[in-house]
Write a protein that binds this DNA or RNA. Structure first.
Lengths: 190, 190
DNA sequence: AAAATACATATACAATTGTTAATATTTACA
DNA sequence: TGTAAATATTAACAATTGTATATGTATTTT
């Protein structure tokens, strides 16, 4: 499969932006990395902002759609939660730089896109909260504050990208998913 | 206790930088928020960079010193880990915006400060890893990959600041610490 | 009251930023 | 081969950036 210039542009730019931050990456940085002149950047993107929007909303939509499918299934709360965790882990391992962008750079969106992003993400978390609340009330999860539990579950999964971007080691997605699930459900205690 | 202009400057600037990002906050933004002209900013700080350095290294040093004291104590691994968690929770609740700066903006440090920061932080994590490794080998913690366990424990604690900055509710530090400890040691399962 | 400190302003500058316009060259395909 | 599409260049722009200088006015301390 030949990798054309456009794919290369997006890959390299994504890495650069993750490394130096959105505001910290200039179009000239990007041009330099790809060995061409500044103006050429506009053969690939309409604006710096649109580059960010593209990745952020694609990712968000993919997660939301997947969660929708989980919610309209007949699985139990714990089973649903395991699907959510699986999705996060698998997506993060497949696209760690996109996730890094998602975590670190969403604040650079401009209105009204910023608000749209925040609302959709808030909606996603609220739905995960619904799963956890159901899990507690049905006795599948231990008694605890459901909002805090949701917050902790999301927090746990958020940083996984840095394990993938930093680690030279081979990553086994199946094993990472197992470890992640074990941690969230059983913790590290005995 | 009267709050002088300098304290006010640092408080407001910190909030602004956390909200808009370090690169996204201009000196003119800061001046505008404090109702004075740009040049006046230099009555409080030597440079934009030094503002960041100050907070970041103060925080890092405080955590490192505390961890040193834990390490030279005779507590068991699990007890040590509980002190680490307690420190993170208490500091985060007391200074959520400083923690947010710590998490989000360290990349804006310039060399050689950037490298110094990364090394010290890496060192901190390595020491926490030592605690967890000891905990596992002494049978206080369940059998698992110690590096991944460390990664997960740190990840869990990292985002707590956003709970404090976003929540209008009253935060009970004692209760949050209990919930955090329970999550890390027992997870959310039954 | 005088002196020192804290807090403010106006003005300027060189560098860097994202973006645009006009145009040239290479590559792929009918 | 010829034509369209992809990829490149050079040059310029208006705006914004962090920072510097020189100076003025309150406020506090002596």
């Amino acid at each position: 499969m030949k990798k054309n210039r456009k794919e290369l542009f997006f890959e390299e730019t994504l890495k650069l932006v993750v490394q130096k931050g959105f505001k910290g990456t200039t179009l000239r940085d990007i041009a330099h990395k790809l060995n061409f002149e500044v103006a050429n950047v506009y053969n690939y993107i309409d604006s710096k902002e649109s580059f960010l929007e593209g990745y952020l909303f694609n990712t968000l939509h993919e997660f939301c759609e997947y969660l929708d499918n989980i919610m309209t299934s007949s699985y139990s709360p714990v089973e649903k939660l395991k699907f959510v965790i699986s999705k996060h882990v698998q997506y993060t391992i497949a696209q760690p730089y996109v996730v890094a962008l998602f975590i670190y750079e969403w604040r650079n969106l401009k209105e009204p896109k910023l608000k749209e992003f925040e609302e959709k993400r808030e909606n996603y978390i609220a739905t995960v909260n619904d799963i956890i609340k159901a899990g507690i009330s049905q006795g599948e999860l231990r008694e605890m504050d459901d909002k805090f539990a949701t917050f902790m579950v999301m927090s746990s999964m958020r940083w996984l990208f840095s394990l993938v971007t930093n680690e030279e080691n081979n990553i086994n997605p199946i094993e990472i998913e197992k470890q992640m699930t074990d941690f969230i459900f059983k913790g590290i205690g005995k």
